[in-house]
Amino acid sequence: MVFPELPAVPGVLTSRDIRRTGESIAAAQEPDGALPWFTGGHTDPWDHVESAMGLTVAGLWDQARDAYIWSAKTQRDDGSWPMQIRQGVIENADADTNFCAYLATGMLHFLTVTGDRGFVADLWPTVRAGIDFVLDLPRGAHGEIHWSAGESGSSGEALLTGCSSIYHSLGCALELADRVGDPRPDWASARRKLGGALRDHPEAFLDKSRYSMDWYYPILAGALRGRAAHAHLERHWGEFVVPDLGIRCVSDAPWVTGAETCELVLALDANGNDAAANALFTAIQHLRESDGSYWTGLVFTDGKRWPEERTTWTAAAVILAADALSRTTPGNGIFRDAQPS
């Protein structure tokens, strides 16, 4: 087995730094393969997959496989996952549609990096069931997908960030479907309609414009590209970007966060804004700890890291951003390669 070269961003992080960050994620992994937010914390299916993607880029392929096997073993009969689990105990049994779709992104990324077709074929029924669960739920008039489902049915409300991520996951699922010989034109139709909702019908989504994710996620997910994406980023840049520190999680709080900053780096990279992407990636390194882990965020008015957690998914976002900027592993374009439909 040939392992990939590890990313390095000159003057910012070495390949050894990236490996240490991957090892910080692996250190939190539970015996059953779950990747909680931090040791002893809860696991959610989306951040679990994000962390597995970080392990993959860091060359920790066995640990990533264990994480994806956990996803297969914990999937419910209807194709969904509980929203929150702590050490095997369900804490929130509702399903988040974005969470249930994201395994497709993780598995396409794993296949692209490792070339392990057999493992991905084994996991394909799990991916397919998750996507079918999401698309079998009632949808809004413009194709938007309700964000959660529980015993009383779907929430009846759609989130722009969540739907953007689902849009990206549908693109990954379609590529996987073609690669395994199980084409799904119905998924392509749902993705096209969802893309139209994201671009043309902001009224279809709950107003979460305070949150930076609602700003950059349509670009990260591939629903918006080119001049329109550049103009959209410029329009709200001053609301969220704090020079030399990163970006705010919410526009009206003095709190910069590592994961959101690195996701914006990925969005900027995907749209060709290389200088801004590199500057933000460099800026957010103040959250790095000596063992390679990353604090979730910083309240910059008092200089305190908050919450007092070093989260696996923040570390994973850093690794994925480093890979995109350095063009290192074959999976470095998992977000850049997404195209509008």
Rank of each mutant, 00 (worst) to 15 (best):
Met1His: 14
Pro7Val: 00
Ala8Tyr: 01
Ala8Ile: 02
Pro10Lys: 05
Val12His: 01
Thr14Phe: 06
Ile18Thr: 00
Glu23Lys: 03
Ser24His: 04
Ala28Phe: 03
Glu30Ala: 13
Glu30Ser: 14
Pro31Thr: 02
Phe38Lys: 02
Gly40Cys: 06
His42Arg: 15
Trp46Thr: 05
His48Asp: 02
Val49Tyr: 01
Ser51Glu: 05
Ala52Gly: 14
Leu55Tyr: 04
Leu55Cys: 04
Thr56Tyr: 00
Val57Glu: 06
Gly59Val: 09
Leu60Glu: 02
Trp61Asn: 09
Arg65Asn: 07
Trp70Leu: 13
Trp70Gln: 10
Ser71Thr: 13
Arg76Tyr: 06
Asp78Leu: 06
Gly79Cys: 12
Gly79Ala: 13
Ser80His: 04
Trp81Tyr: 09
Pro82Asp: 08
Pro82His: 09
Ile85Gly: 04
Ile85Thr: 15
Arg86His: 12
Gln87Lys: 15
Gly88Phe: 00
Val89Leu: 15
Ile90Asn: 14
Ala93Asn: 08
Ala93His: 01
Asp94Tyr: 06
Ala95Tyr: 01
Thr97Arg: 13
Cys100Gly: 03
Cys100Leu: 08
Cys100Ala: 15
Leu103Trp: 00
Met107Asn: 04
Met107Lys: 06
Leu111Tyr: 01
Thr112Leu: 10
Val113Ser: 03
Gly115Leu: 09
Trp124Gly: 11
Pro125Lys: 08
Pro125Gln: 06
Ile131Asp: 06
Leu137Thr: 13
Leu137Met: 15
Ala141Leu: 08
Ala141Ser: 11
Ala141His: 05
Glu144Trp: 00
Ser148His: 02
Ser155His: 12
Gly156Gln: 08
Ala158Ile: 05
Thr161Cys: 12
Gly162Gln: 01
Cys163Ala: 09
Ile166Asp: 03
Glu175Lys: 14
Glu175Pro: 07
Leu176Gln: 02
Val180Phe: 00
Arg184Phe: 00
Asp186Gly: 12
Ala190Ile: 05
Ala190Met: 08
Leu194Arg: 00
Gly196Cys: 10
Gly196Asn: 11
Arg199Ile: 05
Glu203Gly: 07
Leu206Val: 15
Asp207Ser: 12
Ser209Ile: 06
Met213Gln: 09
Met213Gly: 09
Trp215Gln: 07
Trp215Ser: 10
Tyr217Ala: 10
Pro218Ala: 03
Ala221Arg: 01
Gly222Arg: 05
Gly222Asp: 11
Ala223His: 04
Ala223Val: 09
Ala223Arg: 01
Arg227Asp: 15
Ala231Thr: 08
Leu233Trp: 11
Leu233Ala: 11
Arg235Cys: 03
Gly238Val: 02
Phe240Asp: 02
Val242Arg: 14
Leu245Glu: 07
Ile247Asp: 03
Arg248Phe: 04
Cys249Val: 08
Val250Arg: 12
Ser251Trp: 01
Asp252Pro: 00
Gly258Ile: 02
Ala259Arg: 11
Leu268Thr: 01
Ala276Ser: 12
Ala277Asn: 11
Asn278Leu: 07
Leu280Ile: 07
Phe281Leu: 06
Ala283Met: 14
Arg288Tyr: 05
Glu289Asp: 15
Tyr294Pro: 09
Trp295Ser: 09
Gly297Leu: 10
Phe300Leu: 04
Asp302Asn: 14
Asp302Cys: 15
Lys304Leu: 10
Lys304Trp: 04
Arg305Thr: 14
Glu308Gln: 14
Arg310Tyr: 05
Arg310Cys: 11
Ala315Gly: 11
Ala315Lys: 07
Ala317Tyr: 01
Ala321Lys: 05
Ala324Trp: 04
Thr328Lys: 06
Gly331Asn: 02
Phe335Asp: 00
Asp337His: 12
